[in-house]
Simulated scan of single mutants.
Amino acid sequence: MAGIDFSSLTPKNGAVQELAELIFLELIEDDKLGQLVTFMPNQENGKKLGFVGKAGLLGKKAKGCDPEYAKNLVQASEKTWDLQEWEIAEVICYKELENTIAEYFAANGSDMADLTSSEYMQQVVRPILEQAIRDLVIRFVFFGDKNAEGSLKDGIDAEYFNLIDGIFKQLFTGVTEGKTKRVVIDANTKTTVAAQYEAMRAPGAATGVLNKLIVDTPMKLRRMKDRVFIVTQAFADMLNFDIQENNKGSELQWESIFEGIQKTSYQGLTLIAVPQFDEIIQEYLKNTTNAEAYDKPFRVIYGVKGNFRAGSKSSETVADVKVTFDDVTRKNYLYAADTLGALVLAEEYAAVAY
């Protein structure tokens, strides 16, 4: 958000509403988080989202008069939105800033306790809120799991994950049901983090995963335009290593997208590395089989971005962003809320490696 200057965050001058709009735009813009999933505003919980697949078999031997009319041209399917409400609710007391550098940004006229239009609120809290909402979207849309309790490290509140079933959960379910192609990454099964990385450094390990995804997945996916790989940063690092050290190929050329997310090209297909995935895997997820190892640190999603959807009831903003000061408690209250859902439209038009 560099270059955007808010004179205040108080509701009366509209800056809070503008903040909500800017966060929403960052979610849906194609050059930012919109490269990972297709964001859809104005959705409703329980609403059916219809989509059309490819045509069935068409064209038979002509029969002259009275041809037989079939219904193979348009094959429609539908999914149902599960939109759930999330919220961020924080309280800040000016006394907490005493004897810190933030104290110098807290002055607000004659009332030191009211931080709503202070430099501290603008320069410290606002960027943290923006990033928190973007991180929240990535966490729920990709790692959401309504049954997250058993998959989290000790002490992690499941409510940070169990809002919805995210894209990884839906793809894992698709694999179990035989709808989604899976490529096994053997390195993920190792018993320690060091062993996982050592196995992934083997010649051809990373490139082999991508090649297998391209070659072994259904041809109806291979025929589609705008295919993309979405990978953990750990996998991207090992891919770099594989190409540079083992395959003696030229280096991958990376382009920065947004907050550490980068993209490159592999065999003509876009590959996006998302370090936020690794942060979640390393800090919050538990490997239920090997306690000393990460939970599937090397992950690849392969498909078409349009097949991966995120939805919200909101139209143009994050629905509710408020910064208020209460004279009675002498505290500042920050509240943000909205709805969120995730869908893999057609599991057979996606593949995954883990």
Results as ranks from 00 to 15, higher is better:
230 I>W: 04
205 A>V: 02
195 A>I: 00
216 D>M: 10
218 P>Q: 10
204 G>W: 07
208 G>F: 03
213 L>H: 03
231 V>A: 06
226 D>G: 11
202 A>S: 14
231 V>W: 04
207 T>V: 08
204 G>Y: 06
230 I>A: 03
225 K>V: 02
227 R>A: 00
214 I>D: 09
215 V>P: 04
214 I>G: 04
218 P>H: 05
229 F>P: 00
210 L>I: 01
228 V>H: 01
204 G>Q: 04
201 R>L: 09
228 V>Y: 02
229 F>V: 02
231 V>S: 01
220 K>C: 08
216 D>E: 15
201 R>W: 04
223 R>I: 14
199 A>G: 01
207 T>I: 05
231 V>K: 01
197 Y>G: 09
230 I>G: 00
192 T>V: 06
207 T>C: 12
215 V>Q: 13
219 M>L: 11
197 Y>Q: 13
210 L>S: 02
201 R>D: 11
207 T>N: 10
211 N>E: 12
192 T>G: 06
219 M>D: 14
192 T>D: 09
226 D>I: 07
198 E>N: 12
221 L>C: 05
196 Q>V: 00
208 G>E: 00
209 V>Y: 03
198 E>A: 15
230 I>S: 04
231 V>L: 07
204 G>P: 08
196 Q>D: 05
219 M>H: 10
209 V>L: 08
229 F>I: 03
213 L>D: 03
215 V>A: 14
216 D>V: 01
221 L>E: 00
222 R>E: 09
214 I>T: 04
208 G>C: 04
223 R>A: 15
228 V>I: 15
199 A>K: 10
229 F>E: 10
194 A>V: 11
217 T>Y: 05
229 F>S: 04
220 K>S: 14
208 G>Q: 04
206 A>H: 06
196 Q>K: 10
191 T>N: 15
211 N>M: 09
199 A>H: 03
197 Y>N: 13
200 M>C: 07
228 V>M: 14
216 D>F: 08
207 T>L: 04
196 Q>G: 05
208 G>K: 05
213 L>A: 04
229 F>C: 05
198 E>G: 09
211 N>T: 05
196 Q>F: 01
212 K>P: 00
201 R>H: 12
228 V>G: 02
212 K>C: 07
192 T>W: 07
222 R>V: 04
200 M>N: 06
219 M>A: 15
227 R>E: 02
200 M>W: 03
207 T>Y: 03
204 G>K: 10
224 M>Y: 06
192 T>C: 09
204 G>T: 01
209 V>H: 03
191 T>Q: 13
204 G>A: 06
219 M>E: 15
203 P>E: 12
195 A>H: 07
224 M>H: 05
219 M>R: 13
222 R>H: 11
218 P>Y: 01
220 K>R: 13
226 D>Y: 11
206 A>M: 07
208 G>S: 07
221 L>S: 03
